[in-house]
């Protein structure tokens, strides 16, 4: 067991973890942050995307021990005081989700995307989301949502 101290969605945690524990499993099972999900075992799907110190990472592709001393934001940490994050709002408004399984990862990556490029074109949005698979939507409404969020100043 290794002891780690992390900040997740604003809360501080100190926990003992097995070194082999993936960050996503730590979030889901030890912290109960089940909003972040697992969709693959090869780092391809992006469903597990979270922000590590503000940048997107696939939480299935790192060990919890590697996050020691770092700050993580998950889909559950976006809304503040019951107020949806503009990206969440845009996903809803633009029907950018169907089953919703890819959605947490998609929203987190979209936020990262706008951090780099606050006013992306359609093509730039598509490229920025290349690491996130969605089987339901055909992506079109996701692209629309990200651009709407950009227009609404979603890069916060």
């Amino acid at each position: 067991m290794s002891r780690i101290t992390v900040k997740v969605d604003g809360g501080g945690y100190t926990d003992d973890v097995e070194p082999r524990t993936l960050l996503v499993h730590y979030l889901r099972e030890q912290l109960g942050k089940t909003g972040t999900v697992v969709g693959c075992d090869t780092g391809n799907c992006g469903a597990c995307t979270v922000l590590l110190d503000g940048r997107s990472v696939k939480s299935c592709s790192m060990f919890a021990v590697q996050a020691d001393g770092h700050e993580i934001t998950t889909i559950e940490g976006l809304a503040t005081d019951g107020q949806l994050h503009p990206m969440q709002q845009a996903f809803h408004e633009n029907h950018a989700l169907q089953c919703g399984y890819c959605t947490p990862g998609m929203i987190m990556q979209s936020i990262d995307l706008l951090a780099d490029n606050p006013d992306p074109t359609d093509d730039e949005v598509r490229l920025g989301l290349e690491g996130n698979l969605c089987r339901c939507t055909g992506y079109q409404n996701i692209v629309r949502a990200v651009r709407a969020a950009a227009a609404a100043g979603g890069a916060r």
Binding site: V57, K58, M62, D112, E130, G131
Partner: peptide, 9 residues
């Protein structure tokens, strides 16, 4: 290379 998340790590 890969995608943005992969490039971050």
């Amino acid at each position: 290379i890969g995608d943005p998340q992969v490039r971050h790590r």
